[in-house]
Structures are given as C-alpha cells and as structure tokens.
C-alpha cells in the first residue's frame, strides 16, 4: 500500500474513533455539555499519551538499533518517578509542590531530559554492541530507580508511604486535566522536533558506522533523540503512570502496517496507531464491558507475551 495512503487511512480511523468516543450515548439536556467537556479532556489526554508513547518508542528503537526495546523497559519511567521524589526531597514539599501543576511539571520534565540524556547517552551513545546486556542493564536500572524511589519516600516520610506506592500502577482513566495544557505543549514540541529530525533519523537507522561515514554527527543526533524520548516518556508517565510494553505493541503494529524505514512515515503512523488503540480500547472496555481499569492490564499482559514471543523467535537482534 502507498505510504501516504496508510497515513490518510490511519487519520480517518483516528477521526472516526474520536467521534465515537465523543458522541456515543451522549445524554440530552443539561448533562450534555458537561459530559462532552469531560470526554474532550480525556480524548486530549489519550491523544497525548498515544503520540508520546508511539513516537518515543520509534525514536528509542532507532537509537538503540533494536526492535524489541521500549524506553520503559530500559527504566525511563522509573527514572522519571525517582526524579519527582528527589525534587520533592530537595526543594521541600511546601516550596515545590505548591507551584502550579503546569510549571512544576515543566520543571520536572526539564530535569528529566538532562538526566536521561546524560545517563542513557553514555549507555547507548556509541551504538549498542551487546544488546542483551544493555537491556538487562536497563531493566536492573529500572529496579534500582524504583527501589531508590521507595527508599527515599520512606526516609522522607515513614508513615505516608501509600502516596509513593500509588503511582506504580498505570491507569488510562484517571488523567489529570490540570496537566493537559503543559503536557500538550511539551508533546507538540517533542513531536515537532522528532519530525524535523526525521531524515537524520533515517540515516541513524542504518547503524553507527554507515551513519558516521555518511557524515552524520552521530553523538549529537543520539543525544537529541534521547532528549526527545525523555520528554515524551515524562509526558506519558505523568499522565497515566508506567506502561512498560504498550510501546512495543505500537511499534510492532507500525512496522507491520507501514513496512517502511522512513521516519517521516513511521513517526506519525506510530502516534496515530497508539492513539487509535487507546481510544478504541478505552471505549470498548469502559462503555461495552464496564471495566475501565481492565485496559491497562490487558495491554500490559498482551505486550509482555508479545515480548516473550519475540525473544523465543530469536528476533531480539
């Protein structure tokens, strides 16, 4: 199928899904405006999560030259949560937590971008040679960050432990509307930056040696891509919490549908596929099955099995 056509079809499906989500079973009268507003907010939230998860995964897989990784498998989301706790610890609960949600969030994302670029730039910067060891490192870093997070939380406040633990489950249905403006702006910046880099990412996708010989400033592109990944992962983690394997499914679907290595196609396609999956999934589980919380469990479960399948099929390289 024509690459451009794929994008148009996806856009059509996305519009349809959004319409169903907004209009299905809309009540009459006074409740109508209220429900519509609520649904619009959640639609925007799901769109942002979709765009950020899809694009972050594609970018990350290109940098790591590997099709089975997601930033979350490598501990990005755990780093974000640890960083949140540390910021609270460093600046005091009153001073920092008192800031408006959008400002606080933007500050967190800025720190996260620097941290992630420094940490994962060292880990992935030279191009990954021993992929399994790098994945294992990421997984263990994730455990380390999560444990440190719990540890710092406990030391800060031995009694109010529940607050820290709460954030360890993903939920697609509890998106904080106060974060949406800042999250929207950051997602747009990240997505635009990624699209601007698209042709350089295509070259990066060839691998380190060909990329360098084609004159690509390899290290700079890797760091820039990782910074965008960190930004996008921060957005999705702040909105819905940690989802480890969702990106994997999205990336798999994207490669399967587009059969393209061109990032100008891959990036928007992955964003739309992620958004469609989320919106349709949420519609079905919330309105048809009446089990809104099921979705994140089912997606994670399916993603985990998909990962194991890729592993057994020897597709890790």
């Amino acid at each position: 199928m024509n690459k451009r056509l794929v994008l148009w079809v996806l856009a059509g499906v996305l519009a349809l899904a959004a319409a169903i989500w907004l209009l299905q079973g809309l009540p009459d009268g006074q409740a109508r405006a209220f429900v519509l507003k609520l649904r619009t907010e959640r639609l925007v939230g799901l769109l942002l999560v979709g765009i950020s998860t899809g694009m972050a995964t594609i970018l990350f897989q290109t940098v790591a030259a590997n099709r089975v990784l997601t930033p979350q498998i490598m501990g990005f989301d755990a780093l974000y949560m640890l960083m949140q706790t540390l910021l609270v610890a460093a600046f005091g609960i009153a001073g920092f937590a008192g800031l408006p949600a959008g400002v606080k969030f933007t500050g967190e994302v800025a720190v996260m971008v620097l941290l992630a670029a420094a940490l994962f730039g060292t880990l992935l910067g030279q191009g990954v040679r021993d992929i399994p060891r790098t994945i294992l490192t990421g997984v263990i870093l994730g455990i380390l960050f999560r444990s440190l997070n719990t540890f710092v939380g406990r030391v800060l406040d031995p009694n109010e432990f529940a607050v820290v633990q709460q954030a360890s489950f993903a939920s697609f249905s509890k998106i904080d509307a106060a974060l949406l403006p800042a999250a929207g702006a950051l997602t747009l910046i990240g997505a635009a930056a990624a699209m601007l880099m698209a042709s350089r990412l295509d070259v990066l996708g060839l691998g380190r040696d060909p990329a360098v010989s084609l004159g690509l400033h390899h290290r700079r592109v890797v760091l820039a891509a990782l910074a965008i990944v960190a930004l996008l992962v921060s957005v999705s983690t702040a909105l819905i919490g940690p989802v480890t394997f969702f990106g994997l499914i999205v990336a798999g679907l994207t490669h399967g549908l587009t059969h393209s290595a061109c990032h100008r196609v891959l990036l928007p396609a992955s964003a739309m596929i992620a958004a469609i999956t989320l919106i349709l999934g949420q519609t079905v589980f919330e309105r048809v099955l009446g089990q809104a919380a099921f979705l994140s469990v089912v997606i994670e479960f399916a993603g985990g099995l998909f990962f194991l399948l890729l592993l057994i099929k020897g597709r890790i390289r």
Binding site: P132, R133, V139, F301, G304, L308, L311
Partner: peptide, 19 residues
Amino acid sequence: EVMLVPIAGLVLSGVIGAI
C-alpha cells in the same frame, strides 16, 4: 545468548505477577 535468560525471566515474572 547468556543475557536473554534473565530478561525472559523478568518479563515472565512481570506477566505472571500481573495476573
């Protein structure tokens, strides 16, 4: 692939834990 074994184990733990 020595390193794949622990990765498979961790993911399997995650899947069973999720159930």
